[in-house]
Design a protein around this nucleic acid. Structure first.
Lengths: 361, 361
DNA sequence: TTGAAAGCGCTAACAA
DNA sequence: TTGTTAGCGCTTTCAA
């Protein structure tokens, strides 16, 4: 392979030698379907069909076309093709922030499904900014990506979805935030996971518990599940101990500091709506010279890789990012393959007990 | 404590067209430049120029065109435009694996520079597979992305670069692996960082030190710097204590296990070529009931966010991922703006001492 | 089984 | 200052 790589001379005006170029290289000059047609002695139409299989072509012609295309190093220009077919063989992943480790895992699952199918994926960050999210989605629609997988923060409504659908662009929502006949859903049973957290904390004897919640709709399930679980244990969530943060560790720090300074006294256990905020909370607590879990128990949500390696290892809820990404990819592909009916896929969430929680002292 | 807390470029508002403000909604039906021309009572050419500013248009006409475009919700079709202009307003980031936290940070830096300039970015994983890397790059060239930022693992040579350059596609290499007049470089002074590691370990009294190295060319600088530093301290790296791994935590586990079983006895300190492998090494060591740093000191490289939160917090070398991504983005943009001369940007690396290293017992 | 011709929506060369 | 015309490279009628 190295040989194939370096056997060409760099020249200012690179000359392309058809016969010596394997199909896996790219010629330095442009090769169009017309060039292939000429070389194979057929029309461009036939080249197109011979290569795509879109209509019957004689075996002999196919062979000739294939050889010519191979020798010339022909690759169809995706822009020209896209202009005709209105498909780009691309998809987009729209998420709050790729530096939150939950999302790279999800991205990887998505890519591992879409990549073999010939789709490249744009990754776009919204930073939970609804305006940005909306602009992004509109831009992606305009760019005619074939699918949009998004973790919505409330900016996408029927208007945006319809604009997408009208152009044959399929959307998958990570989470239940978008309710639309044409939008598939990939969810985790977050409510159940959060309920487990509540029961776990209750079973450890905690009664004064707090919640660091997400902003907007996105954290509703987790908060509701937490409330449900507490209720089942005969506890109630004190509203003064519910503080919103922005899903980042900085947000977690700020929220935790408010909780530590709560007029009625600090809680003995805190459930953060994601691991990043839990990490922030952890830092805020230790920065005050308090210990986790001895002085305060902390629970996160997501089970990012780092959670197991924190000090102390974080009790959290497993939210299967990779599997969700894969599932989202499959949903996009099956829509593109013609599926009509909406699909909703729910993955389970399970509590992962580690050392950041303990009995109330 | 900061996690994912880095300065971000402000206003990631995507720009669609330099001179026009697109309406914030998207009509359900297709709107073309001809529709706008009709509505404004001018030719499509004039619409194009009124919106792009590519040639003088009277103020009155511009106003009329803008209004018509706004009212109709016109947005240029990027495929049609790209077919003519041979530009796609896209870039690609080709990396080993987005789930290694070093890369999301780099991706974010890149996106925060490219996004405001109107570029979307594809993220592609190679898993250090040279064939895949090459296929990916060729595909991206064929897709006519405007720029490719890659963390090369040896598959890209002059042939690929020339194919890109011939199409006006600019490449930036993260690391020194590609040496080509038209490829800009973003590097860290890894050799210096690794030298500091060696000196740090030597100063702690370690003499029997090991190295978990990367495969292929990518880890050479780190290994060489480590050797240099040891030499300066009058030490030598025992080749039986140098083991290659694949840059993942699993790779680190496997490598560490081999080192613990070394015939001549386990080392007292290990330098892993990245933090992921260091985390694996940490796990392998503790799984054997040994303690870090009491029984064995471990050093990583990169300083991913999690490094500070490990137990024990990891001594490592700061490798400024976000800044590198930003710089790569700037290099792409300035090339697209016409820069001719090659640029090479070297960021410093500095040792971050934490608790995973201590005096030899 | 194949080809000619039209056209996707845009921009750029050439005219006026 | 503006318009006409000609493609960019492909796929898809329509016709043979």
């Amino acid at each position: 392979m190295q040989i194939a790589l370096h056997d060409r001379v760099d020249s200012p005006e690179p000359q392309f030698d058809a016969a010596s170029t394997p199909s896996r290289t790219l010629p330095d000059a442009e090769v169009t379907i017309a060039d292939v047609a000429r070389a194979a002695g057929v029309s461009p139409t036939t080249v197109s069909h011979a290569l795509s299989g879109n209509r019957p072509v004689s075996a002999a012609t196919i062979a000739r076309v294939r050889r010519a295309a191979d020798e010339l190093g022909y690759r169809p220009n995706p822009m020209a093709r896209g202009l005709r077919t209105r498909r780009t063989q691309t998809a987009a992943l729209v998420i709050p922030d790729i530096t939150n480790p939950f999302y790279p895992m999800l991205a990887r699952g998505l890519q591992d499904v879409l990549s073999p199918a010939g789709y490249h994926v744009f990754v776009c960050n919204t930073d939970q900014d609804a305006d940005l999210e909306r602009d992004l989605v509109l831009d992606l629609i305009q760019r005619r990506v074939d699918g949009i997988v998004l973790n919505p923060f409330g900016a996408i409504g029927p208007a945006e979805v319809n604009a997408a659908i009208a152009r044959g662009i399929w959307m998958v929502s990570i989470g239940p935030e978008i309710d639309h006949d044409n939008v598939d859903l990939v969810e985790a049973d977050e409510r159940a996971g959060a309920r487990d957290v509540a029961q776990h904390l209750a079973s450890l004897g905690h009664t004064r518990v707090a919640h660091i919640g997400g902003t907007a709709r996105a954290g509703r399930e987790r908060e509701q599940g937490f409330r449900d679980g507490l209720a089942e244990a005969g506890l109630e969530l004190d509203d003064t101990l519910v503080v919103a943060a922005d899903w980042t560790s900085d947000g977690g720090v700020a929220a935790m500091e408010r909780l530590l300074d709560a007029p009625a006294g600090a809680p003995t256990a805190v459930f953060a709506a994601n691991d990043m905020m839990a990490i922030g909370a952890l830092n805020a607590v230790t920065a005050r010279g308090l210990r986790v879990p001895e002085d305060l128990s902390i629970v996160g949500f997501d089970d990012i890789d780092a959670a197991a390696h924190l000090s102390p290892p974080l009790t959290t809820v497993l939210n299967p990012a990779y599997a969700k990404g894969e599932e989202a990819g499959r949903l996009v592909l099956s829509r593109l393959a013609g599926r009509q009916e909406r699909r909703r896929c729910i993955t389970p969430c399970s509590l992962v007990e580690r050392q950041s929680t303990t009995h109330r002292r």
